[in-house]
Simulated scan of single mutants.
Amino acid sequence: MSNLHYPQFCALARAAELIGERWTLLIIRELLLGAKRFGDLLDHLDGVSPTLLTARLNALVDSNLVRRVTLPRQANAQLYELTDIGREIEPAIRELIRWGGRFLFPPVPGDTFEPDWVMLGLDAIARRTPVPDIAIGLVVRHDRKSAAFTIAGGQNGTTIRKGGTDCKGSLQAPFDAVLQIIGMSISLEAAVASKRARVSGSAALVRKLPQLFDLAERRRGATTAM
């Protein structure tokens, strides 16, 4: 169990005891993206020691937020994945990402970035109301790494899933350019002209990408409030 304890009979205090230790929320972020091996977690949590990661995972397992899964003998590996109780924290993580987004820029020199994290970031700003019934491919690149997604709209809002095949229009760009295009602080044409983005297939379809998110409206609201 976590060594963190607040002597208060309060649900928020109990939640903080479970997930308030350093690195714990980021471990949960990784597991929301899928089950992972210990080495995968270590690679994506730059700065955490193997000893500390082991302690955090043990505490999460003891709290029934995470479970260990042993793969068949041929694979000879153990995975960590969220339990049903652990996965119930996803809406709270989404709101934390929405809130934390205002403090994201400018990037801190030396910070690491994994393109896979974009899936949770985009889900946090996805519309939850009906949007155009379209599917747009997205490839987010960073240095030599990249991650592909499909951004799909419909009556239930916007969904983001891994993989970007079978889309009639796709956008390839670094994450900061993707946010600027979605937030309508730069146009798709300007991003392409400056070589910060590349479009494959239907540019008219990709131009509808901001309609699947509420980032532009939130930014306008923040500007109005100032």
Rank of each mutant, 00 (worst) to 15 (best):
residue 101 G to W: 12
residue 165 T to I: 12
residue 42 L to A: 07
residue 118 V to Y: 03
residue 153 G to R: 01
residue 157 G to E: 03
residue 172 Q to E: 13
residue 157 G to R: 09
residue 137 G to C: 06
residue 93 I to Y: 05
residue 126 A to P: 02
residue 103 F to D: 04
residue 48 V to P: 06
residue 189 E to R: 15
residue 28 I to S: 06
residue 88 E to W: 02
residue 197 A to M: 15
residue 161 R to W: 00
residue 17 E to I: 09
residue 154 G to R: 06
residue 222 A to G: 10
residue 47 G to P: 01
residue 88 E to M: 01
residue 29 R to A: 03
residue 98 R to S: 03
residue 16 A to E: 07
residue 24 T to H: 02
residue 125 I to F: 06
residue 104 L to Q: 10
residue 60 L to Q: 01
residue 174 P to Q: 13
residue 10 C to H: 15
residue 203 A to T: 15
residue 45 L to I: 00
residue 36 K to Q: 04
residue 67 R to A: 04
residue 201 G to K: 15
residue 168 K to E: 11
residue 37 R to M: 09
residue 164 G to R: 10
residue 1 M to A: 11
residue 168 K to W: 07
residue 92 A to D: 00
residue 187 S to E: 12
residue 111 D to P: 05
residue 212 L to S: 03
residue 19 I to Y: 11
residue 23 W to V: 06
residue 41 L to V: 09
residue 179 L to Q: 09
residue 164 G to H: 12
residue 6 Y to G: 07
residue 71 L to C: 05
residue 83 T to S: 05
residue 196 R to A: 12
residue 148 A to E: 14
residue 38 F to P: 01
residue 183 G to S: 11
residue 20 G to K: 14
residue 210 P to G: 13
residue 118 V to P: 00
residue 21 E to C: 07
residue 127 R to K: 13
residue 22 R to Q: 05
residue 181 I to N: 08
residue 142 H to C: 04
residue 136 I to W: 13
residue 149 F to W: 03
residue 34 G to R: 01
residue 106 P to R: 06
residue 180 Q to C: 14
residue 57 L to H: 04
residue 109 P to D: 06
residue 127 R to E: 09
residue 94 R to G: 00
residue 19 I to E: 05
residue 50 P to A: 07
residue 44 H to L: 02
residue 28 I to V: 10
residue 156 N to W: 04
residue 35 A to Q: 02
residue 30 E to S: 08
residue 81 E to N: 01
residue 88 E to I: 02
